[in-house]
Design a protein around this nucleic acid. Sequence first.
DNA 1: ACAATAGTGAAGTCATGGCTTGACTGTTTG
DNA 2: CAAACAGTCAAGCCATGACTTCACTATTGT
Lengths: 105, 105
Amino acid sequence: MTPDLDRLFQALGDPTRRAIVDRLAESPTSVSRLAEPLGVTVTAIAQHLQVLEQCGVVRTEKVGRVRTASLVPDGLTPVERWARDRRSMLEKRLDRLAEILGEEG
Amino acid sequence: MTPDLDRLFQALGDPTRRAIVDRLAESPTSVSRLAEPLGVTVTAIAQHLQVLEQCGVVRTEKVGRVRTASLVPDGLTPVERWARDRRSMLEKRLDRLAEILGEEG
DNA sequence: ACAATAGTGAAGTCATGGCTTGACTGTTTG
DNA sequence: CAAACAGTCAAGCCATGACTTCACTATTGT
């Protein structure tokens, strides 16, 4: 069910991948420039980028010999929406409960 | 870095665990009632609940022989905030860019 | 043309994660 | 008290995931 969210959440569960997202939030960046501060191989970064691309968080374009990665504008909104929906559902329930308890108190 | 978010995102990356959260968004539920519709063992559910508890999404209380799980009110807000922050950061950057391109167009 | 640069591909390693089974501990209920 | 019930513990299984190395393929600058 919803393999989209599966891959999305799982992708963001990795600290290196979230670090990549953070870096890309500032500006589009090449593979090797992403690898530098993270203490991993460029190969690893390339693999992470593939994962992030597959779940719609990152876009990637290779011009010449350098591949530049950038964030997809609405790539994170499914996550945001999922969390917000659950929270609002819970809040509504708790409000109803508080109301009932208030009436009889 | 931020092992909180690590565990949180990773926890939510599992479909069974998200299904549990969905169920709990409706109402607090016992372990065995959670297990029923999900096609897994109660043992598995107990393990999932432990994970969700450790990352602050779920609260759990055992009275008599039945353990009842419920959602923690702000358990998902870190996720929501993280996603929202990145999105707004990106949007600001893109707005600035559009402005610059507009000026010279 | 040559050397340095930027990335890709295919293996392989090592740890972790989700799940199960089977035995066991408490708690209700007839 | 005995039997059904709700959950827990300890092990172990199997798949996946994050990473590395090494060899290799473009590209770019001298």
